[in-house]
Structure formats: C-alpha cells, structure tokens
Design a protein around this nucleic acid. Structure first.
Length: 283
DNA sequence: GCCACTGTTAGCAT
DNA sequence: CATGCTAACAGTGG
C-alpha cells in the first residue's frame, strides 16, 4: 500500500544506509520483476550508490555513470536487510549485496505486482514510467494548484487517485484529504468554489506532511526498509472506519465504491454539494 | 469457500 | 480527448 508518505519514508530509511556503498552482486529470483533485459542488471556491479529519491510512488536508486534502478512497490513490495547469504523466503525476488558489508538488501513482494527497471540516462525523471506523472504535491507552488484543478472534470476521489493530476496520492490519503477538506468524494472538480479549492489544497498539503512526519501508515504489510512501522494509521479519521463515529461530529462513517475503490467519508462533515445551504438552521 | 484489499492498466463504453 | 467502469494481475486474511 505504499503511497507518497510510505515511499518517502522507505527512501529515507534506505538512503541513510546505502548511499556511498558499492554494489557487489545483484541476484534476481523472479524474472518478471524486471522490466527489460536481465543482462542490464549486471552493469550495476561495482557501481557506487550516490542517491535515493522518490517520485510519486516510485523509488529511484542512482549510481554513478547515469545508471539508475527504478522500483515500484505496488501493493505489497518491501525492502529489508538480512545477513549476507541468508536463505531467502519464497516472496523475496531480489538480493543486493555490497562491498565490505556483512548484510544485504532484499526486495520481497508477495503479490508480485511490483517492478524494477534499469535506466541509463542523465535524466531518469523523463523515463516512460515517470514522465506521465503530475507534479509532486509537496513541491508544487501554491499558486499553481487552482490552474491545475480548473482543467479537470472528474469526481474528486478519482481525481486525487489520478497520478497524472498529482503524483503519489493513493486510496488512504485521498479519503483522509477529502475528510480534512470537508468535501464529498463524488463532488465534480468543476463545481468547486475558490474557497473549496483552497481548502482542498491545504488539506492535501497538511495530510501528506503529517503522514510523512509519522512515517506513513502501517495497515497490513507496510514497513520501512529498517522494518519500522509507520504511525499515521492511528490518525486515520475515516479510512477503514465504516460504521464508526466521525471524530469531528459523531455521525457514522460511510463506505461507497467509487471507480472500483472503497471510499470512506463522513456524511455530515462531507456533504454533497448543494445540500449545505438547505440544511443550515439557526440554533 | 467467498469476498475484500492498498496500485495500476487495458479494454470498452459513454 | 476525457471520463467511468470492470476485469485482471496474485496472494493473504477475515
């Protein structure tokens, strides 16, 4: 389930351990994990890792000589460390050992949806997988958001999940963001007032920043590369909370399916547009 | 055994 | 072209 905050946390945990290390061996146990030619992987032997970055939900390990490893963890991808040469378990599909280090980095993915790709280019962010992504929500200038959303028509929930709109938001944070903004997930983007666009943008920033600070959400499989759980699952206010009271108003959280995805929201705090005024009453 | 599940995409409909 | 919906990927867990 790694979304932006989880991948950001994994990148940080990986970065502090592998930058500066020289790759000794790379072993691939599941050919379909790699998009491209298996021989490309061998070019990384002897290469020093100089950077670990995130773009959307993808992770980029960069070496010298314009060589990069691009990972997508999809639903269940995980990195972890073992002692060098330790037997691998069935869902472990890749092992990377380093010169002068008695441990090795492994990648496991129970559902096998994740992928790895080798890039050789000075501009890895222009590759096929990364090019279609929209802006990074935590880097986009505040002034650019209204223009970005004004060109879109779909429902807010689907829009937030659209990686070409903003990169990195997934199902959990989309629901938490819409709750924070007080907007119904079915609201058409084209019907937002200026004020609501402002609320949506600050909710996006606030929720993602808090989730990054909390190290992401550990619901099922998610752990960072050091095996640490995130804490943001404790701050979820609607996601996965069908039938439980809304923490703001006490109404029962509802669940809807939108575009095939579960969507959780508070029917009172996130009114459908057009109903707020009718139900306003004096005290 | 049946259904749901975090991500994404292809294919088809509107 | 844009958007919406479903199925499919493969496995685990309730």
């Amino acid at each position: 389930m790694p979304e932006l905050p989880e991948v950001e946390t994994i990148a940080a945990s990986l970065r502090k351990k592998i930058v500066g290390l020289e790759i000794e061996e790379i072993e691939l146990f599941l050919p379909k994990l790699l998009r491209g030619d298996a021989a490309e992987l061998q070019r990384f032997k002897g290469q020093k890792i100089i950077g670990v970055r995130r773009r959307g939900k993808m992770l980029l390990l960069s070496c010298e000589d314009d060589l990069h490893l691009l990972f997508h963890l999809k639903m269940t991808g995980q990195f972890y460390w073992t002692k060098k040469g330790e037997p691998r378990d069935a869902p472990t599909h890749l092992g990377v050992s380093f010169k002068d280090l008695d441990r090795e980095l492994r990648f496991r993915d129970v559902r096998k949806f994740g992928f790895l790709r080798c890039l050789e280019t000075p501009s890895p962010f222009d590759c096929e997988e990364l090019r279609p992504l929209g802006p990074e929500p935590l880097e986009l200038d505040d002034r650019d958001f209204p223009g970005l959303i004004s060109r879109r028509k779909g429902r807010l929930k689907s829009l937030l999940l659209d990686q070409s709109f903003l990169a990195g938001i997934g199902n959990i944070y989309a629901d938490e963001i819409l709750f924070e903004a007080g907007l119904h997930p079915l609201t058409p983007a084209s019907r937002l007032s200026k004020k609501e666009i402002g609320r949506l943008w600050s909710a996006i920033r606030r929720i993602l920043k808090k989730a990054v600070a909390a190290g992401g959400s550990s619901i099922r499989d998610y752990k960072d590369a050091d095996g640490m759980d995130g804490l943001f699952q404790n701050d979820h206010r609607v996601y996965g909370r069908k039938g439980l009271p809304c923490p703001r108003c006490g109404a029962n959280v509802r669940r809807l399916v939108i575009g095939g995805r579960a969507s959780f929201f508070c029917p009172r705090c996130q009114r459908k547009k057009g109903r707020q005024k009718l139900t306003t009453r004096r005290v």
